[in-house]
Design a protein around this nucleic acid. Structure first.
Lengths: 178, 178
DNA sequence: TGGTGCATGTAAGAAGTTACATGATTAC
DNA sequence: GTAATCATGTAACTTCTTACATGCACCA
């Protein structure tokens, strides 16, 4: 149950409408918890029903912006959730699964797909590096910024892992077929 | 749609019953694609209905083992899927999300949880290292084994990442509260 | 005959995905 | 005025999770 808490976090940073949240979930928070607008609208309704957020007074007709704000109960719930015990989920990666399948049915055509993934991960890595240059240029940082920097470093490390691992694995894959 | 293909892979390695598959999904394949027995039984029924696998002749009563085998169509489907274009999913990690939330509501109690995760990732890393020592001791390897070794190395690298990242982040977290 | 483990399932619900629908605003 | 875009939704479906149900085999 992470989506409601992702939304609470985003709304605490800045009260927003559903579409604004959707946009913000395409970057920043969305880098490690993505969501579609359908999920977000549904979840906003639930959070409001449960008294964790409320809509700011606005015309309540259909095509109208509705802006939400976090209530005290919402902040309390988020605080509780941050320190909760939640075991890390095991890795769940379709690409590794496909490599495993390739050991059984052969790796025909897989090299192209690995090269494609390598390109995508290089792009994502470059994006994170740009964000780091832009948002964390200084040497000394406030406590809050340091935590955000650690989060970004997790993204950098994970993309770096994929780039290195794909490069090595590709170098070791037979030229065509298997 | 990875679960059916995970099952096809496991069944190609060795025809099995539902419970046997469930056990094997607790290790090996399950290291990067976990599944419960309920998922597995449902998926076995679908795969049989779709003509990708079939049950070996056995007494078909309720509490009886039912062993499955992959058909030619199943192998063809798996071969197709291995080389298919599938974009990598963005990272989706509740712990990183909780750190992000902590930048807003404070990191109270989070240090304990990070220490707990550090312990769990160290355990998993040790397990992978043991598997590596046991299954890939030699220097020269057959092509098939090399691919499997790469898969294991992905697990090793990912767990190593978590251990290092958690260690650094913990060292930088205020002693209590936030 | 009664408990334990093996083996296969059903049921209900939460979460995520994909396709489509509808009202309001803006730009021409 | 109408087309594009903004904004909020509905509907149907698939996947995953959690809890429970049922039958068989073995052993004491």
């Amino acid at each position: 149950m992470s989506l409601p808490h992702a939304i609470l976090t985003a709304l605490l940073e800045k009260p927003s409408s559903g579409l604004e949240l959707t946009r913000r979930f395409d970057k920043s928070i969305g880098f490690f918890w993505s969501a579609t607008h359908q999920q977000i609208y549904r979840e906003l309704n639930r959070l409001e029903r449960d008294g964790l957020i409320h809509a700011l007074p606005q015309p309540p007709s259909r095509g109208q912006r509705k802006e939400y704000e976090v209530l005290a109960a919402g902040r309390a719930e988020l605080t509780r959730w941050v320190a909760e015990n939640q075991d890390p989920k095991p890795i769940r990666d379709p690409l590794l699964l496909r490599l495993r399948a390739a050991t059984v049915v052969g790796s025909g055509g897989l090299a192209d797909e690995l090269r494609r993934h390598l390109g995508l991960h290089r792009q994502q890595l470059a994006l994170y590096e740009e964000i780091e240059r832009h948002d964390f240029p200084a040497e000394e940082e406030a406590d809050e910024n340091r935590l955000q920097h650690h989060i970004l470093r997790a993204g950098l490390s994970l993309e770096t892992f994929w780039v290195e691992w794909l490069t090595r694995t590709l170098a070791d894959l037979p030229p065509e077929g298997g």
